[in-house]
Computed example of a mutant assay.
Amino acid sequence: MNTATFLDILAVAEKLKCNTRHSWTSSGRHESVAEHSWRIALMALLMRDEFPKIDMDKVIRMCLIHDLGEAFTGDIPAFEKKEEDSKKEDEELFKWIKTFPNPYREEFTELLKEMNELNTDEAKLYKALDNLEAVIQHNEADISTWIPLEYDLQFTYGADKVKFSPYLKELKEEIDQRTTEKIAQKKEA
């Protein structure tokens, strides 16, 4: 890839550092989209031993690129996102990727198609991590940042995505236990 194209791609991706999510960090500021993407990639890296038959390099690549469309659309919280929002995000992302030189254009296109179809174990794992990171982050944030619907959403969000894996089901149970404790602490205060 020539250096000008490389820098142009990075300039668009940099917007993910600026675009914030609904989630708050433990230090009391909104989390950036880039921080979320980084952490789900780290989660995948740390789970290699739990999924020896899964191509974890592919999962990490999925995690790193999954929200690139938000460089164009910004982040829309899952509880507000509509099908047309997802469609627009995909359209913008695929349009941008068409400008990439090969083999990156081909690789990113294939990865995104696989991620959208959610038929492979790699895609299922990436999507589960995407959902789980959000509930983990909410547990790490001050509970005063939660909106009312998140008290139930903490337990339901991602629950359907972990069903294919005993390890992920156990992780979700641990997250739910921590959510229960966090809510109980608020009631005691």
Rank of each mutant, 00 (worst) to 15 (best):
D55Q: 08
Y157C: 11
I183H: 08
L111K: 00
F155I: 09
E188F: 05
A34P: 00
W24A: 03
E106Y: 09
L16E: 02
K81H: 11
D130I: 01
D90G: 15
D85G: 10
A34V: 00
C18F: 14
D67S: 12
S144W: 03
V162F: 04
P101M: 01
F100T: 10
C63G: 13
M62E: 05
W24T: 00
I40F: 03
F164P: 13
F79S: 01
E181T: 15
L129R: 04
I183G: 08
M62H: 03
A141E: 04
Y167L: 06
K113Q: 14
S23A: 15
R21E: 04
V135E: 07
E173H: 15
M115R: 03
E92M: 15
K187E: 15
Q177P: 05
N116G: 13
T120S: 15
Q137D: 06
P103A: 09
E50A: 12
D176Y: 02
I143E: 13
R48H: 04
S37L: 02
F51R: 07
W96Y: 02
S165I: 03
W96V: 00
D49C: 08
H66P: 06
L46F: 06
E170V: 04
R105P: 01
D160C: 02
A159T: 05
V162N: 10
K58H: 02
A34H: 01
T5R: 13
L46W: 06
E110W: 03
Q177A: 14
L45G: 14
E106T: 15
L118Q: 06
T109W: 06
D152Y: 03
I9W: 05
D152Q: 09
S37N: 07
V59G: 07
S86A: 15
E122A: 02
K182A: 08
E150D: 07
L46Q: 13
K15F: 07
D176M: 01
K169P: 10
P77R: 10
L132F: 04
A11T: 13
E80F: 12
K127P: 08
K53Y: 05
